[in-house]
Amino acid sequence: MKRILYFLCVVTALAQTSCQNDPLEDIEEGKWNNERNVLDIKFENQVGNASIVRVDDLTGTINLAINVDAVPDLSHIVIKEMVLSYGANSSIKEGEALNFENAQKSAELTVTSPTGKSRKYTVVASSFRESLIGTYDIDNLIVYGGTGPEYGGGAVMAMTDKPWIWSATLGPDKELDNQLIFEMTGITEDGNTYGTVTNTAGADGAYADFIYIGDPQTDVKKFYRQIPEGEGKWLRNYAT
């Protein structure tokens, strides 16, 4: 009889437990969640990362840079990615655009928490132009270093100051009529610019071979030919 009573007590306890509320119900309903933050945001043709600041409970600011060389104007800048607080919603969604074509170059979006509280963000887009773009004349090649001061080789000097250590026909002087032409072709997902650089041979049609003709003869092109002959590629890391 004692065993039967014990079994009935266990069954009764389990039945009572099964009737209790779901312990995750309050969490899933979000009644506790007042969070209404923009954690990360990325626009088309944005350069670098956006600076996101929660000013107070009701307001915030987002500052970013847009590559204006890649867009006709700032009137339709599309949001590519946006990360919000858990359960929050934004008045502007991914794939939609903001209009920064005004005197302040600013727009607004509002983030609302699951409990209905909101924070209005002022988004300011500054114009970015890649300063590297352009055509550069090479009129000198300067080297710092050498074998070290103790040997008389530590200096800041033009490579053409020692013509006897280079080829008479393909020495560093062949570079002095060259031009470097930098063009931008895009922006990475991390907001870094990239493009092409064209190293033209100039009027003489020649490049230096960077062969040291001492004893032993040594090819030092790996040190001095950092920008290749003809066309190469460049990437500018704005995080560093």
Score class of each variant (00 low, 15 high):
V123Y: 03
D137F: 06
T135V: 15
V143D: 02
K117G: 10
S126H: 03
A103W: 06
F100A: 10
A155D: 13
A158Y: 11
T115Y: 04
A125R: 03
M159N: 01
V111L: 05
L109G: 07
L132T: 07
V124F: 02
N140G: 14
K105I: 00
V124S: 11
T160R: 01
V156K: 10
T112C: 06
G145C: 05
I138Y: 02
T135S: 15
E101K: 13
L132V: 12
F128E: 00
D139Y: 12
Y151F: 15
M157K: 12
N140L: 04
I133T: 12
A125F: 03
I138N: 08
A103T: 15
G153N: 09
E108P: 00
R129S: 15
S118V: 05
G154K: 06
T147E: 12
G148F: 06
G148R: 07
G116M: 06
Q104R: 14
G116F: 06
M159H: 01
T122V: 14
A155K: 13
V111R: 03
A103M: 11
V124P: 00
V111M: 06
D139N: 14
Y136M: 08
G152T: 07
Y121L: 08
M157N: 07
L141K: 08
K117W: 03
V111C: 04
G146M: 05
N102K: 13
F128V: 02
G148C: 07
E108D: 10
S131A: 14
G145T: 02
R129K: 15
L141P: 01
S118M: 10
L132I: 14
G153V: 07
E108N: 15
F128R: 01
T160G: 00
M157D: 03
Y136A: 09
D137L: 12
V123R: 01
Y121M: 07
V124M: 03
E150A: 14
S106A: 15
R119H: 01
G116W: 06
I133M: 06
A158I: 00
T115W: 02
Q104Y: 09
L141G: 01
I142G: 01
N140K: 13
A155H: 09
T115G: 03
F128C: 04
Y144N: 09
G154T: 04
S118T: 14
T135C: 09
G153E: 05
S118Q: 12
Y144L: 07
R119P: 01
N140Y: 04
G146C: 02
V111W: 02
V124Q: 06
S106R: 09
A155T: 07
T110F: 02
